[in-house]
Design a protein around this nucleic acid. Structure first.
Lengths: 161, 161
DNA sequence: ACCCAGCGTTCTTAAACGAAACCCCCTTGC
DNA sequence: GCAAGGGGGTTTCGTTTAAGAACGCTGGGT
């Protein structure tokens, strides 16, 4: 029936997230949003993405509340796209993707840019918010809930309504 | 000319990472790998992904060194797919995706499963490895290197060779 | 009046997906 | 010895989506 990876039957937060930001280009659109890009033409120019695809991606990001539109001119009517709080919470996702790519593809210090935090080099570290420890492979488990949890499709529908 | 989002002209670790794991299904394949899945039929059954697509994804993950094959039977010749060290380093990516989906789509405690770390609930927190602080939007910057950095395509080629 | 900027929409074409059939290799059971 | 079945794919074919280029719309500038 086509090509879309349809994650919506699953019941999993990862699948749910990918349903929102898993399309090709979407994460690069968000990367640029974090870097200050707000307008259609800027994204189009920087990414070289097809305009129809860009329009469609922006639309679904707005529909999911990751971006919102804000008018910046009445005549002619123009608006820009800004990250919402929900969108800003995606920053850890981008940072971990960045880190993996730098270490595993580019190699340390070989990347075209660096992250700087308050004057010193930044490298993300993921810790347990409760105890502050870095989780190992052994001590972290995924436990099923006994309640019947909604599928991705259902959760997204509720989220939109 | 087709459909692939081609990130390879960019020079960015995020784009480089997406070139490896950004295909539809790939992140769910990895999610299941972290949950102990190792064989073709298991993935096929759990994901419902088309077999040709699954075969192709596994192939590229092996080619990029995220998974490796390990024989588990000589006659008939059979192998399973295991995460490499490089693959295991993707865990933070999966954890941040999980966290976002749980909080922003399912809602706290509504997800079908929970993460448990050493007996207590786990929620990932991203901190600066150097100073231990959680970075805000203001104090984290991306700084260009002056050296001419390789494109994603070049970095991946070097990575493979 | 003409051109330009900004933001898309509409078209066509070609790649990638989805589904199901098919294939190979070997084991087990009758 | 032959059929059935499991594991791990590949082939074939139809459909959907992305790429790419062209066009449209709104208003501003000169």
């Amino acid at each position: 029936m086509g090509r879309t990876a349809d994650y919506s039957r699953q019941t999993c937060p990862i699948a749910a997230t990918l349903e929102v930001i898993g399309d090709p280009w979407t994460l690069l659109i968000l990367r640029d949003a974090f870097n200050g890009v707000r307008r259609f033409e800027q994204w189009q120019e920087r990414l070289g993405v097809a305009r129809n695809v860009l329009a469609s991606r922006l639309k679904t990001l707005v529909a999911h509340g990751v971006l919102r539109t804000e008018p910046y001119s009445d005549r002619p009517p123009r608006h820009e796209y800004l990250l919402t709080d929900k969108g800003r919470e995606l920053r850890p996702v981008l940072l971990t993707l960045y880190d993996w790519g730098e270490r595993n593809i580019y190699g340390e210090g070989q990347a075209p840019n660096r992250m700087v935090h308050d004057g010193h080099p930044f490298r993300p570290k993921l810790v347990c918010a409760t105890c502050g420890e870095e989780p190992g492979s052994r001590d972290l488990r995924r436990v099923d809930q006994d309640v019947a949890a909604p599928t991705v499709g259902e959760a997204l529908a509720r989220d939109a309504g």
